[in-house]
């Protein structure tokens, strides 16, 4: 096993185009992350609206009470159990017939929604009460006020936090291999199992995550900077 590093790298990545395991893996990682975040934001916004509505409503309709109860249950279960377990339950128990990638997207989306919901809820509640009073005093309905006055400001407040959730999610999807999905992490692992050489594939996998996260963090700082500036304008 005293091969030179060059030989190992050739074996791990070039021979039989093994680098493609990483390329395809990265593709899946990005695919799962992007669509899971989309689901997470939509679901999170819905849950947040239900919870804020419930807190603010003077008369709580039975439908609202039920929706709020289910939301609370969802948040508790999702935040109280490990992501991998949720993924495996989805894959092996609930939806055994689904395409693995789709199952992963939905699982990570459901998971992310619970965190995004709390982010958006705090964003809504951080908008000054005077804003909704101004909207209502102009004759706008509570829905119109929420949609056109409160939510745009809330989303602006939480844009950095949601972008940060994207970064967190990107790393979290590395457990997708547990249900047989060939994401970036699994790609490195497959190479390792073929070549019996752990160091280069795993280091490269780590570097790819690191570079992407550093890049996204730069974007995050740019977003924060722009938002701070627009607050001063």
């Amino acid at each position: 096993m005293n091969r030179s590093l060059a030989e190992r790298l050739y074996d791990d990545f070039i021979y039989q185009k093994r680098y493609m395991y990483l390329v395809r893996g990265l593709g899946n990682t990005v695919l799962i992350t992007v669509f899971a975040l989309l689901i997470g934001v939509v679901l999170g916004a819905i849950i947040a609206l239900i919870r804020v509505n419930y807190i603010q409503a003077k008369k709580k309709s039975p439908l609202l009470v039920i929706a709020n109860f289910l939301s609370g249950l969802y948040l508790t279960v999702i935040r109280g159990t490990p992501m991998v377990v949720q993924l495996m339950i989805m894959y092996f128990v609930i939806w055994a017939s689904g395409a693995p990638i789709l199952i992963a997207i939905v699982s990570f989306g459901l998971n992310s929604g619970a965190y995004v919901a709390e982010v958006i809820r705090s964003g809504i509640q951080s908008v000054d009460r005077g804003q909704s009073e101004a909207g209502r005093s102009l004759g706008l309905s509570s829905r119109q006020t929420m949609a056109f006055i409160i939510l745009p400001q809330a989303f602006k407040n939480v844009a950095p936090a949601i972008f940060n959730e994207f970064i967190v999610l990107l790393k979290e999807t590395s457990v997708a291999g547990y249900v047989g999905i060939q994401d970036l992490t699994k790609g490195g692992d497959i190479i390792r199992s073929i070549t019996y050489d752990a160091f280069p594939p795993l280091i490269v996998v780590a570097l790819v995550y690191l570079v992407i996260v550093i890049g996204l963090t730069q974007v995050l700082h740019a977003i924060e900077g722009r938002l701070a500036k627009s607050d001063l304008r």
């Binding site: 000054d128 005077g130 804003q131 009073e133 101004a134 909207g135 005093s137 006055i149 745009p152 400001q153």
Partner: peptide, 12 residues
């Protein structure tokens, strides 16, 4: 119409 002490214009 209602006018508030702190204006409450919509900043966005």
């Amino acid at each position: 119409g209602m006018v508030f002490q702190h204006f409450n214009l919509f900043p966005h």
